[in-house]
Amino acid sequence: MLELKDISFTYPHSAEEIFRGLSLSIEDRSFVSIIGASGSGKTTLFRLLNGLEEPSSGSILLDGTPLPVRTSAKRQSTQSFQNKLHNNKTENKSDNKTGIRQIEGGPTGRHAQYAAYMPQQDLLFPWLTVEKNVMLPMTIQRNPKEEGLQAARDMLARVGLSEWAGRYPRELSGGMRQRVSFARTLCAGADLLLLDEPFSALDSITRISLQEWLLDQWNALEKTILFITHDVEEAIFLSGRILVLTGRPVTGLQEYTVPLPAERTRDMLLRPEIAELKESLISLLRQEAEAMGRRDKSADPGGAL
């Protein structure tokens, strides 16, 4: 269970508050989609969850314990390294209000052990083979090479790309690259997967087949998936729960439950209650977009930073 309690957040050097007193909770092994107009704070939410940013106030709790929590002994080396850096810099300050460590070079993915991030663009490294790309999180966490390679091969088998292990990303199609990117995300060994519009750059046929594929993966894996999208239909098809970020700053969430079983097919989207859900989501998003447009217009154009 992941809980955000009373989170407020403003980017450094920015006057605009993104979140104010936002709370939400995500149950284990659920598939939750987050939708919202562009600029509504979806990506910021992910940056908070994977530790690239820290909240100005409020706390992020994992099973009731504030982050960071180390769940695996494997990361011990990384942890002790970070501790060392940290201790050199700031003596005994680990109980600051968020309990989050900061090391030189900006915030690191302190939460890597519980959350793994999959970006919108595949961001595969063109100088690494497919399997080296997949094992990258394990390389970073200083696992033995054999172990990482084995894990990468297992993950590639899972996403059905075993025979591409030794190839380079440029030889793969867009859909295949996203599957490799997903395998890499799994390789981070986290229970929570943060997927940031992973299919938005794909053509619609590929997108549909990858949505079905992802649903199968989620049913087979014991993972929690948080999925950002701006596609209402995609959110409905994939998730058990849909959260809509509203307002600016975001103070709360509109929450919808999708009345479909976990094992679902595309034709279920034609049910009347689904059509109704889709309509209400779309109208909510439209209202939001209009409100945001009004806000932007009323803002003094000369007063922008």
Partner: peptide
């Protein structure tokens, strides 16, 4: 690419690892 650097940071990379990788 700053996005690639950030991706590595989410995996817990140190600055030296970002530099090398």
């Amino acid at each position: 690419d700053p996005q690639k650097k950030e991706l590595l940071r989410t995996f817990g990379a140190t600055r030296l690892q970002v530099f090398r990788q």
